[in-house]
Simulated scan of single mutants.
Amino acid sequence: MKRKGFDEGQLLELIAGHSVRECKAARHGERWAVYVRLGGPASNWLAVRSQREAVRTWASLDTLERFTRGVGIRAFVVES
């Protein structure tokens, strides 16, 4: 089974274990989403999920940045 993303609890465990290699913020419709990559450049980007949706979204980059800072993501790139 191919993984499609991580919920917040799984993301916290991955960050604590230094498994997250890269993070990006990208548009998901009119909102913003966070994607992480665990391996090298050839690995897939995986979405941060919510309990109700396949992709958790934020209304603005400011709110997304507060979330990433709160879970321990120090840097991410923005893809518009």
Rank of each mutant, 00 (worst) to 15 (best):
W58N: 00
L61F: 01
V77F: 04
H18P: 03
R56D: 03
W32R: 06
V77T: 15
K2M: 13
L12Y: 04
H28N: 15
R56L: 10
L38T: 00
A16V: 03
A42I: 12
L12G: 03
R21T: 09
A47W: 03
K24W: 02
H18S: 12
L64E: 03
T63C: 10
F67D: 07
W45E: 00
E53L: 04
Q10G: 09
V71C: 01
F6M: 00
V48G: 01
R69Q: 13
V36T: 02
W45P: 00
G29Y: 05
T63H: 03
N44L: 14
G9H: 03
E65C: 08
W45H: 08
S60W: 06
N44G: 08
R49A: 14
P41L: 07
R66Y: 09
E30R: 15
Y35S: 04
S60H: 01
W32A: 15
R74M: 07
V71K: 10
H28L: 13
S43T: 14
R66E: 07
R74T: 14
H28Q: 15
R49T: 11
H28R: 06
A25M: 05
S60N: 02
L38P: 08
R27T: 05
T63K: 07
G70T: 09
A59S: 08
H28Y: 13
A16S: 10
E8A: 15
T63W: 05
G39Q: 08
L12C: 09
T57W: 01
P41H: 14
A42T: 09
L12Q: 13
